[in-house]
Amino acid sequence: MGPLGPARGKRRHRHLLGAGALQNWANSAEDAEKEAQEVDRAEGTAAEDEGCRECAERCQQAAGKVKDALYRNKRSPQNGGGGHHGYLNRMIEQVCGRSGPGTPGWDNHTDELIGAQRELNKQFEPFSGDNPSCDPQEHLSREERQAIDNILNGQRNGWTPETIPWKGPDHPDCQSLPQARESGRMRDYLPIIRPPQGNPGAPLV
């Protein structure tokens, strides 16, 4: 080997070491990038899951407020025996009350029903519109959704404050009023509000 041979060999060796280190660095960088992407995906999935949980909780709370606006019984001990009725309890009191149309009692109760209707409309907002933030089918029964639609959007249908018929406390349909109020279930309100056709107690209007 000539006088420059060893030096060239060392340079070649250093070059090979440098190339290997560069490749190792590139591999490490690539691994780090992949790891970072995996972390980002994991964090994104976790954030999405957390967002879904928060969304579900918000919708559950919204549904609870809707049902309170529908069913609340101000005389129930769990409500402290005060406050306001939900729309349905006000409605059956209007249907089965002693004060008929044209009386001050009827007119006052109609005003209260208008307020209860507004409250229901307000609480139902997350479930309404073209792009609702909550799916009503996931949180409200078909009967509840239909009743809400009748209350908020019906015209001359017997559900809105201005169209509710009067039957009076002695009407056959009104005998189940205490049970409906106690149970707070739609199935117990409907026989009072909309008896099936052929029911001898059904209203003539």
Rank of each mutant, 00 (worst) to 15 (best):
I192N: 02
Q78M: 15
D49C: 06
P126C: 05
Q175Y: 02
S128D: 05
R14T: 07
H109G: 05
L88E: 01
N153P: 01
L113I: 05
G86N: 01
N79H: 11
Y71M: 05
Q123T: 13
E57Y: 05
P161N: 01
R41Y: 01
L17D: 11
G81D: 00
L140N: 01
I148H: 00
Q61S: 15
W25A: 15
P196N: 07
E57C: 07
E112Q: 07
L177S: 09
K74H: 14
S183Q: 10
D149F: 03
N89E: 00
D135V: 02
H139P: 06
R185Y: 07
A46N: 08
G129T: 10
A36V: 04
K74D: 06
D40P: 03
Q117D: 01
P101F: 00
Y189Q: 06
G80I: 04
V39H: 08
W166E: 00
N79L: 14
R75A: 15
P191M: 03
R118W: 09
E35D: 12
G51S: 09
G105A: 10
H109I: 02
I151S: 03
G20M: 15
T103V: 10
G201H: 02
H171I: 10
A36G: 08
G184E: 02
M91S: 05
R98V: 07
E43V: 10
E54N: 11
A46Q: 08
D31V: 10
K65F: 02
E112R: 12
N89T: 07
K67D: 00
Q37C: 11
